[in-house]
Design a binder for these strands. Structure first.
Length: 398
DNA sequence: GTTAGTTCAGTTGAAAGCAATATTATCGGCTAC
DNA sequence: AGCCGATAATATTGCTTTCAACTGAACTAACGA
C-alpha cells in the first residue's frame, strides 16, 4: 500500500518505537546522578560549601576538554546547594552566547536580568549597569555564586578588564558576597591574564580529565535507560559509541550525539532496534556533517580551488599537480565570475585545504620536470557528493 | 661509473598594498549643578 | 561642567600580490679509470 506523507506525521505521533525520552540524550540534560566525577564533585562541593552558611567561597577555575562534564557538574552541584540553603544564589552565564552575553555590557545586563532587574539592550553607560548590578546583588543579601561558562571566549573578545572588575566587586558589597567560578576548555587560557586577575580568580583550580571508554559506557548506559524503550538497544551499541568517543579525547557529548543519531537513524528506517551498524552510520553522518560544515565555512576562493581539484579528479586524471589545479581554477573563476588569485596564493590555499584534511597533498620533486604538489582527494563518496552539491549551489561546479 | 652542473615547475619567505574591521578621538546634545 | 551616544579618524588585521631566493631529483655532460 502506498503511504502518503500524512501517514508519516500520524506514525510519528502514535508510535514511538525507539525513543522514550530523547531529551535524556541532549547535552543540556541534567541527570539525577553523575557518574565518574566523584573526585571533582567532592572538590567543587568542598569549595562552595561555605556558601550554605552565607560565607564567601573561594573563586574557582575549572579546566577540561569539551564533553568532560564541567558545565553539567557545576550546574548540578550548585543547584543542589541552592536547594539546601536560602543563603546562596547561583547565577549561570554562558559567555559564548552571541548577542546575549559576549560583551561587558551584555554580560552585566544579563546578570542583572537574572536578578530581576530589567535593563535596556543598549543605551546606558557601563557604569550605570554596574551600579544596577551591584544594587541588585545587595538587595539579594546572599552569597552569590557566579558561574561564567566558556570564559575564555569572553576574555578573547573583550579583554580581562571585566574579570578584574568582577573579582574586585566584593569590596563594594556590604550585605552580599560574590564568588566566581570560571569554566574554560582552554588549559593555557589563564597564562594570558592579568596576573592580579589570575591570582584572585584561581584561588582554587579543578581539572576535569577526559573520560575513558569504560566510564563513557556507564554514562551512556544511564542515559540510554531513560531515553530508549526497553529492548531496542542492540548488542554492543553502547560499547561502540563509547569506544568511538573515547578515541576522540573522551568527549561525552560526542558519545551521546552518536547514540542519539544512531537512534534517529533507526527510527527513520522504521527499525525496531538499534544495531552497531546504525552507530557506524551515525559516525559517518557526524563526520560528514563536520566536513561539509568545514567546507561551507571556507572562503569562496578556497572553495573554488577545491572545486577545481574535484573537477580534475572526477575527470579521472591521476597525479594532479598545482599547475593543473591552477589552470582549472582559472576556468572556474571565469565561468563563475569571481576574482582570480595568483598562483602563489593558490599554492597556499592548497596547503590550507590539506591542513583541513579535505584534500591530501605532498610536495614531490619530479627531477628534471621540476617540483610540485601532488594532490589527491580523499573523501568518501557521500561526503564528496554533499560537497559537490554545496559547491554547485554556489555555482563553482556544474 | 662518478661527479659536477643544469633545469624545471613550483615552493617558500619577506615585504608591501589594500580593504575590512576594530579602536580611539572628537563632536553635539543633554542633564545636573 | 560632565557625561552620553554618535560620528569621524586612526590603527589593526587579514588577505593578497610582487619579488626573489630556494628546492631536489632527473637529466646532461665532462671526467677519469
Amino acid at each position: 500500500m502506498q503511504r502518503t506523507w500524512k501517514d508519516i506525521f500520524k506514525d510519528y505521533n502514535t508510535q514511538q518505537p525507539i525513543f522514550k525520552n530523547k531529551d535524556a540524550l541532549s547535552d543540556r540534560y541534567v541527570p539525577e546522578t553523575v557518574c565518574h566525577r566523584d573526585e571533582q564533585m567532592k572538590h567543587v562541593a568542598k569549595i562552595i560549601a561555605p556558601a550554605i552558611k552565607g560565607d564567601k567561597p573561594s573563586n574557582v577555575f575549572v579546566y577540561g576538554n569539551t564533553g568532560t562534564g564541567k558545565s553539567l557538574i557545576l550546574v548540578y552541584i550548585t543547584n543542589e546547594m541552592a536547594r539546601n540553603t536560602d543563603k546562596a544564589r547561583v547565577l549561570y552565564v554562558n559567555c559564548k552566547m552571541k548577542r546575549v552575553s559576549d560583551t561587558e555590557y551584555r554580560l552585566l545586563a544579563e546578570l542583572a536580568r537574572q536578578l530581576g532587574r530589567d535593563l535596556p539592550a543598549t543605551g546606558l553607560p557601563t557604569v550605570e549597569v554596574y551600579k544596577t548590578f551591584i544594587e541588585a546583588l545587595e538587595a539579594e543579601g546572599k552569597t552569590v555564586i557566579l558561574i561564567l561558562d566558556e570564559i575564555d571566549s569572553l576574555v578573547k573578545k573583550t579583554g580581562d578588564g571585566i574579570l578584574y572588575n568582577l573579582t574586585r566587586l566584593d569590596q563594594d558589597l556590604s550585605k552580599s558576597k560574590i564568588s566566581l567560578i570560571g569554566i574554560s576548555n582552554d588549559t593555557s587560557f589563564a597564562d594570558g591574564l592579568d596576573p592580579r586577575v589570575k591570582s584572585s580568580l584561581s584561588e582554587e583550580e579543578i581539572i576535569f580529565p577526559p573520560y575513558n571508554a569504560a566510564q563513557l559506557q556507564d554514562i551512556l548506559l544511564q542515559r540510554a535507560l531513560l531515553a530508549f524503550n526497553d529492548g531496542v538497544l542492540g548488542e554492543g551499541v553502547i560499547a561502540k559509541c563509547a569506544a568511538l568517543a573515547a578515541q576522540e579525547h573522551g568527549d561525552a557529548r560526542k558519545a551521546l550525539a552518536l547514540l542519539r543519531i544512531a537512534g534517529e537513524l533507526a527510527e527513520r528506517e522504521n527499525l525496531l532496534g538499534i544495531t552497531t551498524a546504525d552507530v557506524d552510520s551515525a559516525e559517518d553522518k557526524l563526520d560528514l556533517d563536520r566536513v561539509v560544515e568545514v567546507v561551507k565555512a571556507q572562503p569562496k576562493q578556497s572553495q573554488a580551488v577545491l572545486a577545481a581539484a574535484i573537477r580534475l579528479s572526477e575527470s579521472g586524471q591521476k597525479n594532479i599537480q598545482t599547475g593543473d589545479v591552477f589552470s582549472v581554477y582559472e576556468d572556474v573563476c571565469k565561468s563563475s565570475g569571481i576574482k582570480m588569485l595568483t598562483q602563489r596564493r593558490i599554492s597556499d590555499l592548497i596547503a590550507e585545504l590539506d591542513m583541513l584534511g579535505i584534500i591530501n597533498s605532498r610536495v614531490i620533486s619530479k627531477g628534471r620536470y621540476g617540483r610540485t604538489r601532488e594532490i589527491r582527494i580523499l573523501l568518501g563518496k557521500n561526503v564528496l557528493d554533499k560537497i559537490k552539491a554545496s559547491l554547485k549551489d554556489s555555482y563553482l561546479l556544474g
